[in-house]
Computed example of a mutant assay.
Amino acid sequence: MEVGRLRALLELARRGTIAAAAEALFLTPSAVSQQIAQLEEEAGVELTERVGRGVRLTAAGQALVGYAERVMVVLDEARSELAVLRREIAGELRVAAFPSVASALLPDTVKALRQVFPRLEIILEEMEPVDGLSALRSWRADIALIDDLSLVVGDKQESVGVVPLAEDVLSVALATTHPLASKPSLSVADLRHEAWAIDSTSSVFGDFIANLCRRAGYEPKINAKCRGFEVVGAMVASGCSVSIVPGLRLVRPPAGVAWVKLRPEVRRKIYVAFRRGERNHPAINVCVEEVVRTAARLIG
């Protein structure tokens, strides 16, 4: 059975639709359908069945998914062992990271690795945690920096390993001229009457902040849905909005913004993730170790 076809089946199982699997694999839906059809021909049994306008895996398809996951882990282990035998840390390493952790940790990490391993090329792609995890699983990334919000309860994680990186403490961001900026701490309820700027790049994080407000008894009045922290910071600094943002932003804080502790404290856990079969790959190993060291130095 051809490996690319097994990957197509894995993505279909994880994402639920041909269109979503195609997007993850950078293929057309017709190409994915063709790969599944070819895999069914090789297997001699139907792996999917029509349900309305969509498809779902048959019992045979679900069984093959389990074997495909194990095959992929073994292939990753083989690549890792060959890299060890070459005794050289070189080549391209693709890292997916979400904006706050990428800007806080990766410049120093990449610089340190470049000095020690000049033939190792780090390729960074900015992705939200959920997308980074998907990229890792579909072999579009070798390492992904993710948070615990992206790890869905009940979701299978057998193929992915993680190393704890840091705990990020969320903070209230206000203009330095805001009347509440001098407070030692603020609750979400204290911000009931404020207008909010929300980084809407990640629906997961935006929904998490909105739910904090709902649990405090109100629906946040959002006057800025921003595609990145640059606009959030500008709206906050101008006094037009407030926000709750990752503490990682304090590593390189914008001008004109005051940071106030959130009461009670809200934390999210940050991890560096990799495919389990590649944990001993030399390039992945040194990158994981370096980003952990950088996080310990900058975040503590």
Rank of each mutant, 00 (worst) to 15 (best):
V51E: 14
V73Q: 14
E41M: 06
T109G: 05
L57H: 02
V51K: 15
V95Q: 01
A90Q: 03
S100W: 03
Y67K: 12
G66V: 02
A83K: 15
A104L: 11
R87D: 12
K111A: 14
L93E: 01
R119W: 00
V71Y: 12
I89P: 05
D76P: 07
P99Y: 06
L57W: 00
V116N: 12
L57D: 04
E42Q: 13
E46D: 11
R86Y: 07
R50Q: 08
E46V: 07
E46S: 13
L57G: 03
S100C: 02
E92W: 11
R50E: 15
Q62H: 08
S80A: 15
R114D: 10
A104K: 10
V95S: 02
L85G: 09
S100I: 00
E41L: 15
A43T: 05
R56E: 04
R50W: 02
R94C: 07
R114C: 04
G44V: 05
E92V: 15
L82S: 10
A97H: 08
F117E: 04
L105H: 07
R79I: 09
A78H: 13
F98M: 05
R70Q: 14
E41P: 00
G44T: 10
D76K: 12
A78T: 13
A78L: 14
A68M: 02
A59K: 09
F117A: 05
P99M: 07
Q115V: 11
A102K: 06
F98S: 00
L105T: 05
V84W: 06
T109Y: 09
L105K: 09
R87L: 13
L93T: 10
R87W: 08
V110P: 05
E77F: 09
P107W: 03
T109A: 12
R53L: 08
